[in-house]
Amino acid sequence: MSTHVKTTDQPLSAEAALEFCSAPGHGAADLFIGRVRDLNQGREVEGVSYDLHSVLCERVFAEICAEAREEWGEPLHIWLEHRHGRLGVGEASVIAAVSSPHRDESFRACRYLIEQMKHRAPIWKQEHYVDGDSEWVQGHALCQHG
């Protein structure tokens, strides 16, 4: 078992994720790459700036990975990285990867990582549009007060 979580302002590496998510007894590896796309809700996007709370973010990443391991097994190798700073269209903002003895655990755990990350990790994005405007994207509230 092995877990890697990180936030960084440097380009993400799918090759590094797959190299980490590898073991002689692992017959499956699942890789998810989230990339900046050029259109959102009808507006042409030329880039996205990601802001994050790095310390808390890595804690939340570690919690999510521990939950995945609890659900789908100790042998999992788990990788979760998110980039911050300004990214252009096509650049990778997040990479999640999981390897396991059989494919079902890898598929399910990788999907869990990305869905939980989007709802729980303290990360925010500001879209920059081709027309020169910029807007912070609406998200999921972390608070539970009335």
Partner: peptide, 9 residues
């Protein structure tokens, strides 16, 4: 810290 609604990915 104050954390507005989140939207990673």
């Amino acid at each position: 810290s104050i954390l507005p609604p989140v939207c990673g990915g």
